[in-house]
Design a protein around this nucleic acid. Structure first.
Lengths: 114, 114
DNA sequence: CACATACTTGCATGCCCGTGCAAACATACG
DNA sequence: CGTATGTTTGCACGGGCATGCAAGTATGTG
């Protein structure tokens, strides 16, 4: 029996499922920061975003850096201020692609409800 | 200046961004298990899935349990064997919803490319 | 130059969690 | 029953990471 033989090799889904991205989003404080920034709809400074959550602003700075590293945010320095902004299109495209890819793997026939 | 006032309260995006889900997917071994199971296209046992990755099968058991807890997989016991299966629709719907929600927050005008 | 503002970085602490091994548990089979 | 198979659980270990504080860097202001 070789049930998983086809699963051993890589496929489109392996390219899309980025552990670092999920890990970055899997932290409540970071997720809150992303949520705040998304709802804000404009670039915000580290100090501004630090008001969103009850942690030291140095922690916020580190979190924002992590989110930027995984491609969720962009960082733009203006003078002594760093503005972070959500990469809306990149994010929505990524999640949409994941959704489509997963859907494509769903057995369409002779299968119990999944 | 009250730049984040509208961001302080909860919105649809806060309901969709589930830290536990992302945390569960943010672990390489778990992600691999999900990928294998998705590509397999049918329910698999713990022992089968343990062949996918180079960790002890007890670890696999725990990982699968985590993925089930967050609603990514279903567990069905048949005799002494437990079959795990991907909740395709639930997953694709979740990611699609996240993508749409993020897209909805994207400023449509007078904004630099995001 | 002195000082304030905005942010980053070094360091120490504590906690969470992934891991492997062994034992326990559950179920099927003679 | 006793044994084999499939899975879960208890336990201990180790590494990674979120956190806060303090010091350092960068930039603007007077």
């Amino acid at each position: 029996m070789k049930p998983l033989e086809a699963s051993q090799c890589c496929g489109p889904i392996d390219e899309l499922l980025d552990a670092d991205l999920f890990k970055a989003l899997g932290e409540p404080t970071r997720l809150k920061l992303l949520s705040c920034l998304a709802k804000c709809g404009r670039p915000c400074s580290v100090t501004e975003l630090a008001e969103c959550c009850a942690v030291d602003f140095s922690v916020v700075s580190r979190h924002l850096n992590v989110l930027e590293k995984v491609g969720v945010l962009t960082a733009t320095k203006e003078g002594r201020t760093v503005f972070y902004a959500v990469k809306y299109r990149h994010l929505s495209n990524a999640f949409h692609a994941i959704a489509s890819e997963i859907e494509s793997y769903r057995p369409k026939r002779r299968s119990a409800k999944t």
